[in-house]
Write a protein that binds this DNA or RNA. Structure first.
Lengths: 253, 253
DNA sequence: CGCTGTTTTGAGCGTCCTCAAGAGTAGTGG
DNA sequence: CCACTACTCTTGAGGACGCTCAAAACAGCG
């Protein structure tokens, strides 16, 4: 009913091929976002032979948990996930939010068991990529190998960015950085970069940004009062994108 | 002169082979710590053909800078490094401290240019590992490929741990976690886990842990008053290792 | 021995957290 | 259909932890 419905996040990405058809990647309209981004068409066809199974994960369910045996990585086909790690004393840290085309499970390779929980924040579907077979294929096709290395490296760079954010930024800067990042990723997927619906709670945003949920809420309110955002619950409209970006690391004006 | 000299960090790791000899990895006594950890002796020999050049980096010099073209990764042979990223407004974040056997430069793969500065905290030496050739070799030898994936994955897991630390822990917990981690890594290298010399300043520890240097200093003093540490400048003696580990995520007693 | 950079310690302040209450929203079942 | 429950979000008041500013002790090096 609200006008924002029109710009809701995931309008059920329509798939070019049936789930069973073995042209999983070749015809997938996420090609440009997912692993296949840098591959030749020949390599792509080989990737197709790999990605034969899909899996749906309903809202609130886990795709995998910490300690699960690692066998596959996953590409988000539709929906939205969070990954979390938790310390012994119960606090937990959201290590990332994954949207369409992004990978889950890379942290499981190191010791062959998953090191975080992956939870669907809405009904989602993933492509299952058996890791042994991916390695086998990467072994044959240098392009795929290289692309996979790139993906892992970018994940490391991303994590370093989050470290910078957690280390030195104010609540306002953190939330601004979070929203700018989200907007950019949504835009890359063909959605509006100025209006969207958050898929996560204030508490989950806080667990990602190193803030308490009350602080997240207060900061949203402040950005609204400053005329930068228009926030109604999870619906976010970025009124002044320039001011928002200026907030990200820019106190030393 | 001080008794702690005896337990100083790097007693110039003695190398089993000459720098030029092409048995770089096979005879290296860092075998168990470095990339070769999981490799067969045949694969090791091939690795030798790869690691032909070394490079020395004097204290304060950079091994590479952000923006430098990425061509190689580096394994620390002796010495000690920090890697840093800096935000536009000048604050910088230490993303890691690397000691003997650890890798530098993995964050450069993603977009073929380095994404951080790597600075030697003391006179150091590294093995240069040309990345294109590493990929070529990994392409041939599945074991090497797999081992490399493991190394990258572990780096991601490590970063997630740091995110947890930066996100939710108190200054005392952060410093305790830092020292416990350092002690464990030193022990793995045959050094004392209870007495060592820090290679970095309070400011650098702070830039890693998301604290100001004054806070790092104060926290050291507090741990000393509590009888957990004995600190004299950069010389650290862990008096009560159990109490120190208890500090790491253990407030919910 | 003076210079420079690092470390320690103090006092006051600000940001974010804690505790708490109330409003808004969604899903369920009578 | 609406009441009921559970969850999420907002807002307030007070307090704690770490930051800022500042000065002095200490160590290393020419």
């Amino acid at each position: 009913m609200t006008p924002v419905n029109a710009i809701a996040l995931p309008p059920k990405i329509c798939i070019g091929s049936r789930a069973q058809a073995n042209s999983a990647c070749t015809n997938c309209n996420l090609r440009g976002l997912c692993v296949p981004a840098g591959l030749s068409s020949e390599e792509l066809e080989h990737l197709d032979t790999l990605v034969t199974t899909r899996r749906t994960v309903h809202r609130g369910e886990t795709l995998f948990r910490r300690g699960d045996r690692f066998a596959s990585i996953y590409a988000v086909r539709s929906g939205f996930f969070k990954t979390t790690i938790s310390s012994e004393d119960g606090r937990d840290q959201v290590t990332g939010f994954q949207m369409t085309g992004e990978l889950l499970g890379l942290d499981g390779i190191g010791d062959s068991s998953h090191n975080c929980d992956a939870v669907a924040l809405e009904d989602s579907a993933v492509c299952v990529i058996p890791f042994a077979r991916l390695e086998g294929l990467a072994h044959e096709f240098a392009g795929l190998q290289r692309e996979f290395h790139r993906v892992m490296s970018r994940e490391i760079v991303r994590d370093h960015g989050v470290m910078l954010l957690l280390s030195g930024m104010s609540a306002e800067e953190r939330l601004a950085a979070f929203l700018v990042n989200l907007a950019r990723r949504l835009e890359a997927r063909g959605f509006s970069s100025s209006s969207f619906v958050l898929r996560m709670t204030r508490a989950e945003i806080g667990a990602y940004l190193g803030l308490k949920l009350e602080t997240v809420s207060r900061t949203f309110s402040k950005l609204q009062n400053d005329g930068i955002l228009d926030v109604r619950q999870r619906e976010v409209h970025i009124v002044d994108p320039i001011a928002l970006s200026r907030l990200v690391s820019d106190d030393a004006a």
